[in-house]
């Protein structure tokens, strides 16, 4: 005998089921932010160490390409969902947005090379925009806020470049002072901690707390 429901019970069941499914699927929603955030931080610090220790600026250039490789591998090893968990329409939209933004990095590199503009600032702005867009779509104040903070921080790289150009005599720098020129690498790591790692941990903590309550 099938269980029949009153009108109120039906509405409650619909609301509860939708909410439970959403809570379960959002359990590890911070994971991609943590994977990509920590990868960028690690590679930035590696590049900083390589550049400072070798005394050659740009030594670490090719190691930047480890970011997509390591990020992709870690995403496969630690997926956001168990293999039987479905994708929502929002997931699909967000994954397409990030795909477009990731593809945008290639022309950003070309622009940075030919216009001698600041690649750190451009990529930070791209990624921060992705975080803010994600936040707006999933209605997460945390992602939106940290995305906009990241957008603000992306301007620091240009300001630093301007300061370097106008107030530092690069020719006069001795080898021991060359680390000054590498400051953007450290700043880049710091900005990614602020705009990806911190919100990723906050989201995971919040979602796990919500899951344990439901």
């Amino acid at each position: 005998m099938e269980k029949q429901l009153s009108s109120q019970q039906s509405l409650d069941l619909i609301a509860r089921t939708i909410s439970d499914t959403r809570t379960r699927l959002e359990r590890n929603s911070g994971r991609p932010f943590l994977i990509w955030g920590y990868t960028v931080v690690a590679i930035s610090l590696l590049n900083y160490c390589l550049t400072v220790s070798s005394g050659l600026l740009g030594y670490g250039s090719w190691t930047w390409f480890l970011i997509p490789v390591i990020g992709f591998i870690l995403t496969r090893i630690f997926p956001m969902r168990k293999c039987n968990e479905p994708r929502t329409e929002i997931d699909r939209i967000i994954s397409k947005i990030w795909l477009v933004l990731a593809l945008g990095i290639a022309p950003a590199f070309v622009i940075a090379i030919f216009s001698r503009s600041d690649i750190y600032g451009i990529i930070t702005l791209l990624m921060a925009s992705g975080i803010a867009i994600t936040g707006v779509i999933v209605r997460s104040r945390i992602y939106t806020l940290f995305g906009f903070i990241g957008m603000g921080l992306s301007t620091l790289f240009s300001i630093f470049g301007w300061w370097l150009k106008n107030f530092v005599d690069l020719e006069a720098l001795v080898d021991a002072d060359r680390w000054i020129v590498c400051i953007p690498m450290l700043a880049y790591a710091l900005v990614f901690i602020v705009m990806m790692v911190i919100p990723g941990h906050i989201m995971n903590y919040k979602n796990r707390k919500q899951c344990s309550q439901s």
Partner: peptide, 9 residues
């Protein structure tokens, strides 16, 4: 209610 919110399950 589950299927309305996901692509497939």
């Amino acid at each position: 209610s589950i299927l309305i919110g996901v692509e497939s399950a």
